[in-house]
Nucleic acid binder design. Structure first.
Length: 204
DNA sequence: ACGCGGATGCTA
DNA sequence: AGCATCCGCGTG
């Protein structure tokens, strides 16, 4: 294990295929979603395509969904066909289609049976050009599709590797969950301060 | 069966 | 502010 950080200011990030071979252990996901959402900022999402080419991007914006209690969480109404994935083990991908056209990439967190998830809302592409300033754009840029739903993030074609911790993190209410009553205002959206890819400005 | 609306993004 | 576009989920 080298002491060189996998990215960050003044450091050259490891190539995507190297990051791909260093997935976070399952234990990294076995915590409440708000903890994981914060910890994933600065980490690298890696996706291997059919040809074996790996694409990597730095996570700069996330949102936490805190299980059945959380009125904004899909699992608020309990276990259904769609939310079944969220009840799986931590470190599972939760991918679904929204508004008929956008795929959302989430990671299941907390212990199995507790439907917590972290939505990857924005990333900074490493070594390729793409618009990634929102969850739909991010999944598209990475090549994540609904068929990735339920995949294991520690062994599958979609993985996350540790990255340098951001210097400063900002937080605020989640986007698009105004229907969730008091949960709509909960500061469960996290961002890397100053990133150009944030999907929206954070409250000052 | 049927109808509604959503963890978005683009255009006006 | 409005719309595309489709599937999951609640209701009948």
């Amino acid at each position: 294990m080298t002491a060189t950080p996998a990215g960050g200011v003044g450091a050259r990030p490891e190539p995507p295929h190297v990051l791909f071979e260093r997935p976070l252990p399952r234990a990294a996901y076995a915590r409440p979603a708000d903890h994981v959402a914060r910890a994933l900022l600065g980490a690298f999402v890696t996706v291997r395509d059919g040809a074996g080419v790996v694409r990597a991007a730095r996570i700069v914006e996330t949102e936490a969904y805190l299980g059945e209690e959380d009125a904004a969480c899909h699992a608020h109404r309990g276990r259904t066909r769609r939310t079944e994935t969220m009840y799986g083990p931590p470190g599972t991908a939760y991918a679904y289609l929204i508004y008929g056209l956008h795929t959302m990439l989430n990671v299941v967190t907390a212990e199995a049976g507790e439907p917590h998830a972290v939505l990857i809302r924005a990333v900074e592409p490493l070594g390729f050009e793409a618009r990634t300033h929102g969850p739909g754009l991010t999944a598209r840029a990475l090549g994540v599709e609904r068929t990735d739903d339920g995949a294991d993030l520690t062994t599958g074609r979609v993985r996350i590797a540790a990255g340098p911790r951001p210097a400063r993190i900002v937080r605020g209410p989640r986007i698009g969950v105004d229907y969730a009553g008091s949960w709509a205002e909960a500061p469960l959206r996290f961002g890397v301060a100053g990133s150009e890819r944030l999907s929206r400005r954070f409250p000052t």
